[in-house]
Amino acid sequence: MAATIIQYIISGIAIGFIYALVGIEYTLVWNSSGLLNFSHDRLITLGAYIFAGTMIIKLNINYPIAIFLTFLSMGILGALIAQGIFNPLRNMRSNIFAVMGTMLLGRIIAELIRLIWGPVPFTLPGFMTGTVSIGSAQISKANIIIMIVSILVAVSLQLFMTFTKIGKAMRCVAQNKRASSLMGINVTQNICITTGISAIICTIIAILVIPLFNVTTTLAASIGLKGFSAGVIGGFGYLPGAIVGGLFIGVVENLSVLFLPAVYKDVVSFVLLIVFLVVRPSGFLGKRA
């Protein structure tokens, strides 16, 4: 029994880091534009198709260059999305315009993926496959890499936000757009940079989950909402909060199987989301609702 519980916790931590990365990506866009990007699960899927479908399988480029080129193309796409949707729509009377805009963008990306790469799912054979034993528990190499990369992404972002001029500007914009604008920060440009970075994080998630979920049109289904829950539970708007929230959801939903049928795993995550929204909207680490 102890071995089973350890396995649940380890697997929960592993999947929790994926939720955490998604939560970080949500948080970045929220902080910079005050909007939620509901097309981000499609951006994750698009990143996987560009990397695996085009860079690796079609063009046969080696992995480091392929990763760089995918980051570049997704970063540019992210900036274009900000320029085309977030910036024009964020000042409209209601946020619903921007939310609808991102949802429709998601639909368009999904159909573009089907038209460009076709509906047949595929994978990268041998890419980050294999497992490592920790005592009696098993963990896949992909999950270990996900944990390391997630921590690196969170730390790098935190350093970037604290010590670089652009990062400081991003924090200013998150705090008060009008004041930032008066202080000479180009808010529009800042939102483009932030969305570009968030698209790159989508690509990081995409590349990391290929060995786990394969490249399919439904690659990011379900992790999108769990990532949103991670953000809320950890404290929306605060990057380390997304990691805490992600790990919390991952472990709790796995351990819930000890008391509930496994089919209620999703229910557990979303009940947690509602409980936090009602009881502690600032989450574990957040300072504001």
Partner: peptide
């Protein structure tokens, strides 16, 4: 053990089977 469409992790269900 059941699961939902779109689920990405079946460790809990499989360990229970084990």
């Amino acid at each position: 053990q059941g699961h939902n469409t779109g689920d990405k992790d079946f460790t809990a269900q499989l360990m229970q089977m084990k």
